[in-house]
Structures are given as structure tokens and as C-alpha cells.
Nucleic acid binder design. Structure first.
Length: 234
DNA sequence: GCGACAG
DNA sequence: ATCTTGTCGC
């Protein structure tokens, strides 16, 4: 019994025989979304370790999920773990978590130093149903998370305000779901949104502290380490 | 009306 | 995400 309708533009990217499965995944997302909390958690006042996570792929399709833990405020690496697995589904917009979160959770279990905050490569509530991979992980791990994407999934923002203030709210269905932010000498914005346990403002504020180039250091490091791991193992 | 579309 | 050369800028 599947009583859920997928958006047409998303459904047309799913193999016919898997549509029902994705409808169940959507049902799962809607349930998880109800547990998301967009309010600053008390623990955020004493952050000493921040993690960045990312997933790279082998030529055979297998994935390598990696997590880098950085010390605050030095932003120096204190630990790196990775987990190799075979993704259960191909990439489909709005369902990224079901492809990458399982591997990230396994890698997380291997961490010796549990972080106070996790920065995820992807979106938080900047998602059609406010449950991007960062929010998904935030619920599963019960930890404050922030989503940072390089491209806009949905919504819109004011280009003028972005250039004037270095950031602009991303709106979707008349609601603020994140922020477009320009960092340093990059005209190309990044899109920040809270995953879980913090506000949009706090997410922006924290990310700015961890950013030196276009992308925040936790993400850059996780991306590099995970990519090097794949290269070394191939 | 046409196209957009995290990684 | 990944496949890839030369090329522009700090």
C-alpha cells in the first residue's frame, strides 16, 4: 500500500520497477522530518571538535565514505576514518541520503573522537521536504549538523542582496530554508542550511568561522582524504 | 510554455 | 559523483 505521490520531475528519473520503493523511502523521509529541530542546541556553546564528511566513488561503483575531525579553532586534523561499501541505490535528486548516509554512519562508528558538530557535503532543510542528507544524518546520529552544497537543489534567492551582503536567504514556497553565501574571492556561492539542532543564522555563523577558501575546511579535508583513499586503493 | 534538478 | 588538457591567476 503506497499512498504517496512523487514529484513528476523526480519520478521520471527512477526506473519504473523501483518507483514503489522510492515512494516508501519518501514516506520514511516524512517521518524523519518530524524529528528535525531547527533550534540551537546548548552544546554548540562549547565546540572543540568539528567533523566534515564526504563520499567518493571507485570506478566499479563502490563508495568510500570518509569523515575528518578537526580541532577548533586551529582547524587542524585530529582524525580520519573511512568505510567502503556498495550503495543500495543510484543517485536520484532528493534521495541522496539513501545512497550516502549508510556509509557515513558506519564510518562514524569507527571514530575515536566524536565531534560536537558535523558539516555535511549536501543539503540540510534546503530540500523539497526539509530532509536533505545533513538533516537525515543529524536525526540518525542525534547530533548538530550543517549542510553545505555547491549547487542549488531547489528554491531561489536575490542576486543583488547576495553581492551586497555576501549572503542572501534561500526561499522556497514562501519559507526561508537556507542561505546562499559568497566567500572570499569566489563569485560562486555555496548554499548553507541547518541539518539538525541549530538555526539558519547559527549555521551561517559557524560555517564562516571554518571557511578559508570557497568551501569550509571540514568539507575540503574530507573531500581530499576520501578522494586520496580511492586513488590509493584502485 | 520550457527547463531547472545536492552528490 | 566521475571522465580529463591545457590554461588562467595568485
Amino acid at each position: 500500500m503506497v499512498c504517496i505521490e512523487l514529484e513528476p520531475w523526480i519520478e521520471k528519473q527512477i526506473p519504473p520497477n523501483l518507483v514503489d520503493h522510492f515512494k516508501n523511502l519518501r514516506k520514511d523521509q516524512l517521518a524523519l522530518q518530524k524529528r528535525v529541530i531547527i533550534e540551537d542546541h546548548p552544546s554548540l556553546s562549547r565546540i572543540s571538535l568539528v567533523a566534515g564528511c564526504d563520499v567518493s566513488y571507485f570506478s566499479n561503483g563502490d563508495a568510500c565514505a570518509g569523515i575528518a575531525v578537526l580541532e577548533i579553532p586551529s582547524l587542524t586534523q585530529v582524525e580520519y576514518v573511512f568505510y567502503i561499501y556498495t550503495p543500495k541505490i543510484d543517485y536520484v535528486p532528493t534521495f541522496l541520503a539513501y545512497r550516502e548516509a549508510p556509509g557515513i554512519v558506519e564510518a562514524y562508528k569507527k571514530l575515536q573522537n566524536k565531534p560536537d558538530l558535523i558539516v555535511v557535503d549536501g543539503n540540510g532543510i534546503l530540500h523539497p521536504h526539509k530532509l536533505g542528507i545533513a538533516s537525515h544524518l543529524g536525526i540518525i546520529l542525534n547530533k548538530p549538523t550543517i549542510g553545505v552544497a555547491k549547487r542549488l537543489l531547489i528554491g531561489s534567492f536575490d542576486e543583488q542582496i547576495l553581492l551586497e551582503n555576501k549572503f542572501s536567504p534561500v526561499m522556497y514556497k514562501n519559507q526561508e530554508i537556507g542561505a546562499a553565501v559568497v566567500t572570499n574571492q569566489s563569485y560562486k556561492p555555496i548554499y548553507i542550511s541547518p541539518g539538525n539542532l541549530l538555526s539558519i543564522q547559527t549555521a551561517r555563523s559557524l560555517i564562516s568561522r571554518y571557511t578559508r577558501q570557497r568551501l569550509p575546511e571540514p568539507i575540503r579535508l574530507a573531500d581530499k582524504l576520501t578522494r586520496d583513499t580511492v586513488k590509493d586503493l584502485e
